[in-house]
């Protein structure tokens, strides 16, 4: 399996704070890689470096490498990069326009499509996200009038509509009921046939249910929680509790790479 994204010694800092330091990890194609970690540990910042959304904040200084298909993300045209690496935000942020226009916004940026092509894309994307049934009779409804959970699924549909190769989802199920949640989890499992999924979640059970590998981020660093001694270190007091939950639930095989001594992967299912 090839790695679609590789992160090498990534650091992100502001003048006042080191947000990420020395992060290295790799994300194999057609898998679900999950990033867990306490609030403020830098999960959102980490995935925002993948599509260079961090460029929007000049005060964030990024060093180290993020490779996409083996080439630094710096070398890509940023518009193309972001089409290929989609992001579903932590806070639902639909555009204040109709449901249809929300989903059609992305495709229209990149191509001039006919009305029926657009209809197809919008319908397919909404179906994927499990929202189609609820909105199909009223595609002109303002997205701001949808419920929080519907907005979240709309944002997933919007991200899918530009046909990305990687779909990053930052807590996509935080405001969903259990049924909608399990539908999104099924979606992720379905998507990994054709896409690569990067998931950020606080829901450890969810991480255990869907992930092929789980990365633990703690204070801006990747914790090699598979190594027996690491978690005994006093600075990982809080992380230990995280991992205990992780390891109790997953009957998984593990792999630890000592290249740079930097990262650890837990793989479920087939070992790479």
């Amino acid at each position: 399996m090839t790695d679609i994204i590789e992160v090498k010694n990534l650091g992100v800092a502001t003048d006042k704070q080191q947000i990420l330091s020395n992060v290295s990890l790799s994300i194999p194609e057609n898998t679900i890689t999950t990033i867990v970690g306490p609030s403020g540990s830098g999960k959102s910042t980490l995935i925002r470096t993948f599509n260079r959304l961090t460029d929007l904040y000049p005060r964030l200084r990024v060093n180290g490498e993020v490779l996409f298909h083996g080439r630094s993300v710096r070398e890509y045209k940023v518009m193309l990069l972001r089409r290929r690496i989609g992001l579903v935000f932590q806070k639902p942020n639909p555009f204040p326009m109709s449901v249809f226009d929300n989903v059609a916004f992305g495709p229209k940026l990149h191509a001039s499509l006919t009305g029926s092509q657009l209809d197809t894309i919008v319908e397919e994307s909404l179906k994927h996200a499990g929202l189609y049934g609820e909105v199909k009779d009223n595609m002109e409804k303002n997205a701001m009038d949808l419920s929080g959970g519907q907005q979240q699924r709309l944002c997933i549909a919007r991200a899918l509509a530009v046909q990305p190769e990687v779909l990053m989802m930052d807590e996509p199920t935080s405001s969903l009921d259990p049924i909608a949640k399990s539908r999104i989890e099924e979606l992720m499992l379905r998507l990994k046939e054709d896409y690569t999924v990067v998931l950020v979640t606080h829901d450890i059970d969810q991480a255990n249910r869907v992930s092929d590998s789980i990365e633990l981020l703690y204070n801006g660093k990747i914790v090699e929680y598979e190594k027996p001694d690491v978690l005994q270190m006093p600075e990982y007091e809080h992380a230990r509790q995280f991992v205990m939950k992780l390891s109790r639930q997953v009957g998984r095989q593990s792999r630890s790479t000592s290249e740079n001594g930097c990262f650890v992967k837990l793989m479920r299912g087939s070992l790479v």
Binding site: N51, L109, H110
Partner: peptide, 21 residues
């Protein structure tokens, strides 16, 4: 809100498209 702009940029819009559309 800034999140709205971010959403458009994350879909691959350029500055002109974010401004006009």
């Amino acid at each position: 809100p800034g999140e709205t702009r971010e959403a458009a940029f994350a879909l691959g819009a350029n500055s002109m498209q974010v401004s006009l559309r």
